[in-house]
Design a protein around this nucleic acid. Structure first.
Length: 287
DNA sequence: GTGTTTGTTATCAA
DNA sequence: CTTGATAACAAACA
């Protein structure tokens, strides 16, 4: 479940690896994963070079040397972007031994081959993710329409953050998951941000004190920065562009820890269902 | 066979 | 028009 820290980890790594490399060929194994005319998609990419990889929330968008179109990549729940130079790659981030696995595998949906022999694999077990091409105008329209405040940038101001709590009745969980209001947070980091701020995810946002909103404002970038430093959370499917796991799971305070002891107060972490999502919190540390 | 996992959108109600 | 809540999608696994 790649959220902002996982997508940013991939973005930074790929920038080091594929910028300026000429695309030799494109192989589409699952048409559904490419939201564009298949023929045109291949035609546009082949022979061109990616000049820059940007990120907005959980969405990646790439610009090209020749084409004026942008390549949008959304990993949704199980998407992976894995880059390799040889036939086999070595994976396994934790203390466990390295695993070798073959690529492409049964979940590989698109392969982009570069003229130095290296390859970029788009894998996606659930097929929610996609690659698509859009014009500058379409790209700008999408970014404007679907994405709220971007954390970790100068857009993330106290004034704007506080504004999204105004005149709303929804829960903290639903508000922070809403990409149109604040982008990049998903189920893991919303729960973690709420724990950090001492706020229960099921609280109504209009009942929060200014102090509590301020705590969320401080906690959100803090948690995202740390997760990026740890190269993301691998709960199930996430792996970086080398096929390695993230290291942040041991730093999680509540997500996936239901039934375990709270690291702060030794109480029991609870799990509830909120807005159809698994939601974790400490009843003692969060009010 | 059933429930569970979640990012995003569609849909409906108020 | 806005907001909120919920279902739906997809596929594998315990």
């Amino acid at each position: 479940m790649p959220e902002l820290p996982e997508v940013e980890t991939i973005r930074r790594d790929l920038e080091e690896k594929i910028i300026g490399k000429k695309i030799a060929s494109v192989l589409i194994l699952a048409k559904k994963s490419v939201h564009y005319s298949i023929d045109k998609f291949i035609k546009v990419l082949t022979g061109d070079k990616i000049t820059k990889i940007n990120r907005r929330g959980k969405l990646l968008y790439c610009s090209f040397t020749k084409s004026n179109l942008f390549l949008l990549i959304h990993l949704k729940m199980t998407g992976q972007l894995i880059y390799r130079q040889n036939k086999k790659i070595t994976a396994g981030g934790h203390s466990l031994g390295a695993i070798d696995f073959e690529l492409p595998n049964k979940f590989t949906r698109v392969i982009i081959k570069f003229n130095d022999g290296s390859e970029l694999f788009f894998n996606d077990l659930r097929r929610f993710g996609y690659l698509k091409l859009v014009s500058t105008e379409e790209k700008d329209k999408i970014l404007q329409k679907s994405f709220g405040i971007e954390p970790l940038t100068s857009d993330f101001t106290w004034i704007d953050f506080r504004k999204i709590f105004n005149k709303r009745m929804t829960t903290v969980k639903a508000l922070l998951l809403n990409q149109k209001l604040i982008s990049g947070l998903g189920n893991i980091y919303v729960d973690e941000a709420c724990f950090c701020a001492g706020v229960r995810p099921n609280r109504r946002v209009n009942k929060l004190t200014v102090t509590e909103i301020k705590k969320l404002f401080i906690c959100i970038p803090k948690i995202l920065q740390l997760a990026i430093k740890n190269r993301g959370t691998t709960f199930k499917d996430f792996m970086d562009s080398d096929g390695k796991q993230g290291n942040h799971i041991d730093f999680l305070k509540v997500y996936g820890r239901d039934g375990e002891k709270c690291k702060r107060c030794k109480g029991m972490i609870q799990k509830i269902r909120l807005g159809g999502r698994g939601t974790h919190f400490c009843p003692k540390c969060q009010k």
